[in-house]
């Protein structure tokens, strides 16, 4: 019920349409990784996925934002099926992600770690590399989210009705002899170039 309302509101205000450019929707196990500029990112990507993929695809969301307040927490864990990550923990922050992957489920990841207001995605953090190394069978799908920073930038109270799209690119994989920085930069470029072709 909340899910349907949320999806209707998302469609009405900010669209959230998918453009499958480099791959088709598939039930194969995947890690979708995208640029991060707004709290709406999670919602848009979730709404862009076909309905049958949503129950087994988990957005990775920050505990300190999505875990706050009962409604937000309910939406994050029950509607969006999010995996909440504690960004300040000293233990392995990837543990809940690995748990989801071990169950055969897919993830939605924002490797920049925090929202950036620049037009290009910022430097990627190492988590994506660790997961790519430990789960070589999982497809890594780059996603570019367009217009999010204009629709709902940092510090805004209400989202403005500007149509946002999610463009899905061709999957990439960690090469055998690839270093961590080289891989992370290649992943970042895969997201960035998707934003160029509109």
């Amino acid at each position: 019920m909340i899910g349907a309302l949320l999806r209707a509101a998302t469609r009405f205000l900010v669209g959230g349409h998918a453009r499958w450019q480099g791959c088709a929707p598939s039930s194969a196990q995947r890690i979708y990784f995208a640029n991060h500029s707004s709290h709406l990112d999670t919602l848009i990507l979730w709404a862009a996925l076909p309905e049958d993929l949503r129950p087994t695809t988990h957005p990775v969301a920050a505990q300190d934002y999505w875990g706050k307040g009962r409604l937000r927490r309910h939406i994050a864990t029950k509607v969006l099926n999010a995996v909440l990550v504690d960004r300040s923990t000293r233990h392995d922050p990837l543990a809940p992600l690995r748990a989801a992957l071990d169950r055969g489920h897919s993830l939605i990841l924002f490797p920049e770690g925090t929202r950036s207001s620049a037009t290009e995605p910022g430097r990627f953090k190492g988590g994506l590399h660790h997961l790519a190394r430990d789960y070589p069978a999982v497809e890594l799908v780059p996603v570019h989210l367009t217009n999010l920073a204009r629709a709902y930038p940092k510090g805004a109270i209400l989202p403005a009705p500007i149509v946002c799209t999610a463009s899905f690119g061709a999957p990439i994989a960690l090469a055998a002899d690839e270093t961590k920085p080289a891989f992370l930069e290649r992943a970042r470029q895969a997201v960035r170039t998707l934003g160029d072709v509109q």
Partner: peptide, 11 residues
């Protein structure tokens, strides 16, 4: 406005 280039500062 969706296809018009504004900036996040115009929100």
């Amino acid at each position: 406005l969706s296809i018009t280039p504004t900036r996040p500062e115009d929100h």
